[in-house]
Design a binder for these strands. Structure first.
Lengths: 214, 214
DNA sequence: GTCTATATCGGGATAGAC
DNA sequence: GTCTATCCCGATATAGAC
């Protein structure tokens, strides 16, 4: 999209290596040396392409949020029904999480960190995700198929379980493998179906719903 | 409970300071110097009480999981109905998160980290939380008031949104304060009520439920 | 664009006095 | 139990050759 470049050039290799390093170790835990080694490059090469470790980190996080936001916007702009749009959003998050394995851990870490490494521009992107979600909710309320639910609530109820599920996969495998506890295994499709279903249930005014209007 | 000790002694001060430092910066980002300063002690004092930074960290995480597990067990052993027990569990998580502000961030970080700093004993505790939840589900299924839901699913659907909500409070305040975006504010009670409600809805076989048995 | 070598500094951990 | 002083390693970042 930017210029011509075929083989994974050094810059791309650095970004990939850094993403996995940051995801696994966090910003402070990540080592520029290790990133360089993984990228099959020298450390100096990283500072040739990026101003600093923080700048490198920021670029990755920004790309991540941009990807999610782009998906959300595309969905919101589609001509699907609100119900279908919400379901599509859930699946989009799953696809992003699977396409970019560094997504769930980095997201969790960044929240825990209080967004310490994020600049205003990135903050603006973050903000826009629940806002896009809100647009879908509004439309659903207009047609009468949705209850009015706070977008933050919806957002966290979707992304919380999903991100936790993917990010915890290593821990769960470990527990399942060494000791026993079959409860720690759970097929991806089942999880996805549940979240999709539960989310839509929350948005729908069920027949026997009591007056709760959270 | 252990011995007599009235004023917050040095060991306790270290644990408190370390908890907040680890929550804010993560394991690698945390500085033993800073912990010592916050605890109004010298760094050497930390190594007098704890074997290493990792040991200190481990003790805090363990205490955290123990607290949650204890709450879950007490609830599961109570004579409340399964529905009430689940609702109580949700509220217990909220109370723990508010009583120990370091809980949500550390939990998120530990998952992202893949439990790298956790020993077998702690792993065993982690495992037991969804297992306790499962016992409640089983009982609910026996009385016919619950559908059969995977405990991991239930666990993540409860703890995911809650922990995200609390841990993201700093980021959300920042976004809400400086720029605008009223969507980022959301009262605690509303959130709690929603999660409680949504969780129970998931467990209940609604009248118009389609055959999904996630 | 890619490398080697090096400056510089902070942080975990310990020694040892009191 | 509490302190000061110190060791030492690893990590970010840069200089400069090719």
């Amino acid at each position: 999209m930017k210029t011509r470049a075929r083989p994974p050039d050094s810059r791309t290799r650095i970004l990939a290596a850094a993403a996995s390093e940051f995801a696994a170790r966090g910003f402070d835990g990540a080592s520029v040396d290790r990133i360089a080694r993984t990228a099959r490059l020298n450390k100096a090469m990283i500072y040739y392409h990026f101003k600093s470790k923080a700048a490198l980190y920021g670029e990755i996080v920004r790309g991540l949020i941009e990807a999610v936001l782009a998906r959300a916007r595309t969905i919101a702009a589609s001509d699907a029904t609100p119900r279908e749009q919400i379901a599509a959003f859930v699946r989009a998050i799953v696809e992003e999480a699977e396409a970019r394995p560094h997504f769930p851990p980095m997201w969790l870490r960044e929240i825990a960190e209080g967004g310490r490494h994020l600049d205003r521009a990135t903050f603006n992107l973050v903000r826009q995700v629940p806002e896009t979600l809100n647009a879908i909710i509004e439309r659903g309320c207009a047609t009468g198929e949705f209850r009015r639910v706070h977008p933050l609530l919806l957002h966290f109820s979707i992304i919380g379980p999903l991100v936790l599920y993917f990010a915890s996969q290593p821990v769960r495998s470990r527990i399942a493998n060494e000791g026993l506890s079959p409860l720690m295994v759970m097929p991806r499709d089942q999880f996805l179906a549940h979240v999709e279903h539960a989310t839509l249930a929350t948005l729908t005014t069920g027949p026997h719903e009591r007056g709760r209007r959270s």
